[in-house]
């Protein structure tokens, strides 16, 4: 589904991704953790080319990411992304936020797109807010709308870039619950998060990144009970207290 082959990226002089090799299968769920600045967000942002890699190859669903703008748009339509700060469109109602992509990118008739939007709003338990504007919702509600917005494009992969780290503590659970439901339906997911409970319950693999490299990757059981590297041990001891 997604392949990284020896991917490098620099921000100016800073070598943020240093030879990433990674292969993600269909229906696989991967959690990426690591200290800030380790390159984990950059890594998943390369998948829909919000960031450009400078060496190596990235292949998504059989299409290689190059400067070909048509290919990029095709891949973006197939890859859903959820951001730390939700990034809903504040000038549109919730239902308009959800139907924007289907109507303009997929050319779905407006009525059908709105029905799909309502279906996914039901799914994230927020259908009653459909006619409101994003500014009228709480952070947790906004993030669930953002998840539904991505789902409306019927994506093959969902990327989550620290989806709960901008939320108040009491709202984290409602978002994680939606993500767990999504996982149970077999969605291919790559999640950057420090929610280790989430990693334990749904991930097939947990990756630990540091200094632009994937230091260690393993099943959640092995990863948490038997970390191999010193850096991983230190990191786990710091976030698990």
């Amino acid at each position: 589904m997604i392949q990284f082959i020896d991917v490098h990226k620099w921000y100016g002089e800073f070598h943020v991704l240093q030879g990433i090799n990674l292969s993600v299968e269909k229906q696989e769920r991967i959690v990426i953790c690591g200290p800030s600045g380790s390159g984990k967000s950059t890594l998943i942002r390369c998948i829909n080319r919000l960031e450009e890699h400078q060496r190596g190859r990235i292949i998504v669903d059989g299409i290689e990411l190059t400067n070909n703008i048509k290919n990029i748009e095709k891949i973006r339509a197939e890859v859903g992304m959820v951001f730390q700060h939700f990034n809903l469109f504040p000038h549109l109602t919730i239902v308009q936020n959800l139907s924007l992509g289907p109507v303009w990118v997929r050319k779905t008739p407006k009525k059908e797109a709105e029905e799909t939007a309502m279906y996914y709003l039901e799914k994230v338990h927020i259908a009653e807010q459909a006619r409101k504007y994003p500014g009228q919702l709480s952070g947790g509600q906004q993030q669930r709308v953002a998840i539904a917005r991505s789902l409306c494009m019927n994506p093959k992969v969902m990327l989550f870039d620290e989806p709960t780290s901008a939320l108040d503590p009491e709202m984290i659970k409602e978002v994680l619950d939606v993500m767990i439901e999504l996982a149970q339906e077999g969605m291919t997911m790559i999640v950057v998060t420090h929610e280790m409970g989430f990693a334990k319950s749904v991930a097939h693999r947990v990756l630990f990144m540091d200094f632009g490299k994937i230091v260690e990757g393993n099943t959640p059981e092995e990863f948490f009970s038997n970390p191999q590297h010193e850096r991983t041990k230190l990191f786990l001891s710091q976030i698990l207290h």
Partner: peptide, 17 residues
């Protein structure tokens, strides 16, 4: 904010849209 551009791009909208 950059997030608005990224959100629009991530659902596949082109520059014009």
């Amino acid at each position: 904010s950059r997030g608005q551009y990224e959100a629009a791009e991530s659902i596949g909208l082109n520059y014009y849209l």
